[in-house]
Amino acid sequence: MATREQEIQIAEKRELTTGTEQLHEGPVFQPAVDIFEKPDSITIVADMPGVKPDELTIDLRNDVLTIRGPVQSPEGEPETAVLREFSWGNFFRQFTLAETIDQAKIEARLSDGVLRLELPKVEKAKPRQIVVKTA
């Protein structure tokens, strides 16, 4: 198991600015993701710090996968800001899946702010050969 052993470069959180209006206040961010594919499954790994496992929602319909993770600012009432380098905000990202996914077998695990989503592909129906009969 090799690790990419270099210094981590800072990347600003990507704020989502779509035409769709948000009904809740505050910024919405796109989680950074790794997506990889094996012959029988697709895996999505997403960084969603601050999201509690029981508040994460994953939704798949019409080939569109939606992951949504609410984040509340952990700053308490008497605290005042001294330095602010990033904003707290909800995570939201959508993917359109080309493969057919076996919805019943989707597995999701969120630990330490990292979501790992396993999406098993549906076994392709075997191609059926149709013989054209000649009269």
Binding site: I8, Q9, E79, T80, L83, R84, F86, W88
Partner: peptide
């Protein structure tokens, strides 16, 4: 990295 927020 990492970005930090400081409050008091």
């Amino acid at each position: 990295f990492p970005a930090m927020n400081v409050t008091r």
